[in-house]
Design a protein around this nucleic acid. Structure first.
Lengths: 227, 227
DNA sequence: GATAAATTACTGACCGGTCAGTCATTAATT
DNA sequence: AATTAATGACTGACCGGTCAGTAATTTATC
């Protein structure tokens, strides 16, 4: 069962197989093959500039077939998000609910999890995509806001409140704190999927290190010497 | 030559004037009217999604006229940047060359100047536009990189080096420091021109305050006691 | 100062190419 | 044979760019 979070499972058996057996009928596998292909192209070209002919071709299928499984281009995109990002978010909520360590560790775990399951995978291009196209496709923006952004912010909010309640973090303006936390992460993916490819390179690990350092240093309640 | 008999002269609204006098000939004024209209639409819709018919209409002119003054859509965009952003950059370079105060003040002045002349004007949408479309229009990305980004980074680099050389700032990894400085500014404009319009509001002043605070606190050499 | 001729800013219909979405046909499976 | 997954030619809307034509303005002539 191929998922696009796993780069080790290339399309050797789906698209290529279809190339060998032109009209093979594989009802079960098609949707995920199509969303995987769509993710690649959406991230590379953006939503508007991605042609459904190309998505279908990459999935080893014709455009008509694509329309058997998805009602429209927008529906296809929604499926990509639903399949790729929402599960990661659900997993993070699960981790949060069961967590028992310090809030700083929890926060670190959440952000690191985001980096490993979204930021540093093919899904990392999605935030930039949303930012780029939200004006022209308000319905998509709304969908993403409801399904991802608001849930993600709630998670961060809960983590921060947990830390403040325990006296571990100093009293914070939670909302603007959320912004400050996610801004550099977003920026990183935005950078990666835009100017990076034309001379303005950036080193993710170092950038994140710097930002993490500033963040933790700025949040903690008691500035102890051990830092 | 415009005379006092010209009824369009006292009118501030170019497009409206043209609407009253359909085919009036105003060779001098057209280019700037067109770039102004183009900036509005490019920022609102993006480069690809902006129709030249609309740009022309907003400037009170037909599409054919647009092509009398600009060779292509790309040329129009380049003119927008050349006319709107490059002069502000040149002014900043000028201010830098003549500056004599502290480097912290200089830095503050540069960033504030950016906010007032670019970030907080209609031009503020341009960075997001570039980020959004650089992949699909590499020539535009290259142009913007050469004309704006590299010059802007050079300016920041010089300001930081000035501070380090004077012992005012601690020794810094200049390049990554540049990234850390501009990331939140970029993020602010990106935010403003994308998700903001759909429920995720942000307060620029407060956001910038927070970031400025963190930044200055992190740069200074050793204001008091140990570190 | 009036009129005609020349110039050129401006127009908008048109062209070629693109692409989301449709549907009659074809072929794999049961 | 019946069912249905898959196809790809087709449609209609859209848009960057073109160009033959139109009209505002200037220059030449009387």
């Amino acid at each position: 069962m191929p998922t696009f979070a796993d780069p080790a499972a290339p399309d050797t058996d789906d698209a290529a197989a279809s190339a060998r057996r032109p009209r093979a009928r594989r009802k079960e596998a098609r949707p995920s093959e199509l969303t995987a292909a769509a993710l690649d192209l959406f991230v590379e070209k953006g939503f508007a500039a991605t042609r459904l002919d190309d998505v279908a071709a990459r999935a080893g299928v014709s455009k008509g077939t694509l329309y058997l499984y998805f009602d429209s281009k927008e529906a296809l995109f929604k499926a990509v998000v639903e399949e790729g990002i929402v599960p990661a978010l659900a997993a993070a909520e699960q981790r949060f609910a069961e967590y028992e360590g310090s809030s700083a560790e929890l926060l670190r775990s959440l952000l690191l999890g985001w980096w490993q399951q979204i930021g540093n995978t093919r899904l990392g291009g999605v935030p930039k995509l949303i930012i780029s196209e939200s004006r022209n496709f308000p319905e998509i923006a709304q969908f993403y806001h409801d399904r991802v952004i608001s849930r993600g912010r709630s998670l961060l909010r809960a983590a921060l409140q947990r830390g403040v309640a325990a006296g571990e973090f100093r009293p914070l303006d939670i909302e603007s704190c959320i912004d400050v936390i996610i801004a550099p992460l977003l920026m990183l993916t935005v950078w990666r999927y835009s100017l990076c490819s034309c001379g303005n390179d950036i080193e993710p690990e170092r950038f994140l290190d710097t930002q993490f350092g500033i963040l933790i240093h700025g949040l903690l309640a008691a500035p102890e010497g051990a830092r």
